[in-house]
């Protein structure tokens, strides 16, 4: 074990680190420079402009799309406003029509009521007149009957009663009754 380690150390010491083998440095440096120059030109001539272009294009597309969306949104808002306005108009119109109809009905109703009232008043007056007539005629007949009856009673009692005194007496009695 120790032997092999020592031997290996000696071997490796002979070989050294490949990193410190200066004879290969020109080779590495040459190919490194070639590589870097190739990558630099590939990047600066082809890749970077292309990627920058793609990114710019995407940014432009996104901006355009956002603007279009903004526009559509505005349009939608306008349409909504128009719709709201139409709705409000229609509602106001409906209310107006309802109010008109209500007023019309009200006037008709008032007229009808007035007419009915008038008719009722007329009928009432007529009836009252009829009642008064009937009452007056009834009064007259009662008075006549009372006079006759009084005359008859006076005659039956043997008295002699002139018509005038009987009439006044009956009238006074009836007034006192009434």
């Amino acid at each position: 074990m120790a032997d092999s380690a020592v031997e290996q150390g000696a071997e490796a010491g002979g070989a050294g680190m490949p990193q410190l083998d200066f004879s290969t440095f020109p080779n590495q440096i040459f190919w490194l420079l070639v590589t870097l120059i190739v990558i630099y030109f590939v990047l600066s001539r082809v890749a970077l402009p292309r990627i920058a272009g793609i990114l710019a294009e995407r940014k432009g597309t996104i901006t355009n799309d956002i603007a279009a969306a903004e526009e559509l949104k505005l349009k939608a808002q306008e349409a909504e406003q128009a719709y709201d306005k139409a709705l409000a108009d229609a509602r106001a119109e409906a209310q107006r029509i309802v109010a008109e109809a209500k007023a019309e009905i009200q006037t008709e109703l008032d007229a009808e009521i007035a007419r009915a009232d008038a008719r009722i008043a007329e009928k009432t007056a007529e009836s009252e007149a009829a009642i008064a007539e009937i009452r007056a005629s009834a009064m007259d007949s009662v008075q006549a009957v009372a006079k006759d009856t009084a005359k008859e009673i006076v005659a039956a009692l043997g008295g002699k009663a002139d018509a005038r005194s009987v009439t006044s007496a009956v009238t006074a009695a009836m007034k006192g009754d009434a």
Binding site: G9, A12, G13, A15, G16, M17, L20
Partner: peptide
């Protein structure tokens, strides 16, 4: 350490 092991 590497230098001591392999290069010196």
């Amino acid at each position: 350490a590497l230098l001591l092991m392999f290069a010196v």
